[in-house]
Design a protein around this nucleic acid. Sequence first.
DNA 1: GACTGTACCGTCTACTTTGGACGGTTGCCA
DNA 2: TGGCAACCGTCCAAAGTAGACGGTACAGTC
Lengths: 171, 171
Amino acid sequence: MSVIRLTAVSYMVLGLIERAGEATPYQVKQFAAQSVGNFWSIQHAQLYTESARLAKAGLLAEEREKGGRRRRTYRLTKAGRAALRDWLAEPETSLGELRSPGLLQLFFGAEKAPLARAQLEAHARKLAEYEQLHEAAGAWLPEGQRLALEAGIAHEREWLRFWREVGDIDP
Amino acid sequence: MSVIRLTAVSYMVLGLIERAGEATPYQVKQFAAQSVGNFWSIQHAQLYTESARLAKAGLLAEEREKGGRRRRTYRLTKAGRAALRDWLAEPETSLGELRSPGLLQLFFGAEKAPLARAQLEAHARKLAEYEQLHEAAGAWLPEGQRLALEAGIAHEREWLRFWREVGDIDP
DNA sequence: GACTGTACCGTCTACTTTGGACGGTTGCCA
DNA sequence: TGGCAACCGTCCAAAGTAGACGGTACAGTC
């Protein structure tokens, strides 16, 4: 029941477990991988430690299998639900960072054409993946989730535009 | 002279010191803050440890003041220059992540209007800063650096579009 | 029923990165 | 000369990353 600092990762875990009702870290990993992980990825190992940390702080209730894999299943406590609600009620004013490895190379003077080609291909692949997801699931996704996906699509399109211009490649 | 893994931060330090000719970690911090730090920030403490690490690996040469602040000044070694060149010659195919705290809240169902307002304000401020920088210095920036700045501007504009739509706020 | 391949699942270690406190140095102005 | 503000480096605890490692479960095979 110690007091801990809650990070973005903490809220991701809380949020995903709330959506699922209950989940093991392994399941959280899978939920994340197909959704929020697209714009904020987590290492699987961290989900185990983070869940344990949240449980210790009283935000998650833990139940452990007796035999076999000894899986731990977590669900939100009242305090956990409150922490999540409080966070959602306080709009973030901080911004993310682009942190694009390719942009870093461009910054430091890498040759434009090959870099642009490499980045274009990767971004095109990512965009296709997003668009497919949007087409397949867009309609029944919770609104926030759908909007987040649309943000991802918009930024991928922007990257395509950018790298095409850098590489002087026609659309 | 040990072998180490080179990360994006390593290349940022190498790249910035190469530009400067020679620099103390403190100076690297300042160069970074006005340029590459806008899309890939580093903690000042890390610049000291990273520089030391690169020196130990033989990629930087270190010279230390005798008295006073005992500043360490670094410059690239031949090996350092080679490492930087090799990295630049191999176009990155990996992508960055959006990692926007606001988007995370949206994903988990935060109320749209207040969130959009908060994010809009922050992004507008950032965009203004970039545009001012671009106007003031754009013409004499090295090309890669200028393009990186333009990428930043484009993405900020995209964020504005996005949050305006989310919050149903007119342009 | 033992055997094997594959997917599933949790833990561990070493290292990097973060956030921020802390404390000393230096130049400037009163 | 004395004090203040800016400058500068180091340290620590905690969070996060990368990936190896090893065990469990289940399906199909002989």
